[in-house]
Amino acid sequence: MSQQTVSSTEAPGAPRSGRLPKINPVFFVLAALLVAITLSNPNFVEPTGYMNFLKRAAPLAILAAGQIYVIVSGGFDLSVGSLITLTVVGSSMLLNNNADATWWVIPAMYAAGLAVGIVNGLVVSFLRVPSLIATLGMMITLNGAAFMWSSGSPRGYLPETFRFFGRVNIQGIPLIQFIPVALLVLLAFGSCLFWLMHRTNLGRMLHAIGDNPRAAQMSGVPLERVRITAFVVSSLSAVTAGILLGGFAGVSTDVGVGYELQAITACVIGGAQLLGGRGSVPASIAGALTLTAIFTLLNFIGLPKPVRDVVQGVILIVAVVLATYRRNRAGGT
């Protein structure tokens, strides 16, 4: 019962027990939504339909795959949306329409992301500020920094070399005709984060400190190091998502707005336990795809943006209520 929120990929012991692995419900929900989209728009089964869908969903999926690290460890990272904005605005400022600068601007953005993650982790670990507040402060700071840097009116566009990751499709692939670079980035980044979360000691330490920090400490887990790593992973995923978004959206100071809550919603849809101890990278990516699919469907139906926001809010609450309900019925803690 209590394992139903755990994806099959996450429970390495499941096959050993000789039972059928339990499949996370998010994958069924996602499949149902994709069928619904296909019914309302038959063009979706064409490569241009689903590939563009995946391309559009890639930044959020990457962001969710990073956010789940912080959620599993028992925290939240609200600074990712503003870090996306900073990445896009900062890149455009540093590039200054010079395509040759791309090779050092991208590493510079990752360095900035690394710094943000370390600061978040240090503030939460050593100053004992609740992560919700610490990263909220970081969010406001980064938004302000992006605004100041660009004097409120960021320069119009990013060079093609930078937009390559978010925008370009690699043509001439047999069967599927083309594959977006953004999808390749998602697959590469997602695989790394999957491995780190579900195959290494770090992943188990994250689960342990989210589950019971005191027991983890008494068992020798280096709490601070693990927590800081979680925030760093989340920040690096935000920089990656920002680079992709910079590719297909324009440069503006509100490009990242709302992404932090969408990422958290995606993780919750993927069955993550909001106060830590349980969560999966593939399920969070599936949660992000589910959320994007819902938005796509609402778009096809012709509902305006405010309705999307209402729906997202309702989904977040319903997902948490369902998770709590399931845990209670399973005799949870």
């Binding site: 390495p12 000691n201 188990r204 342990a208 983890a216 068992s219 190091r225």
Partner: peptide
């Protein structure tokens, strides 16, 4: 838990 806690963070959990 403790065996993993004392091993490298990026080391194999199994």
């Amino acid at each position: 838990l403790t065996a993993r806690a004392l091993s490298a963070l990026a080391g194999k959990a199994d």
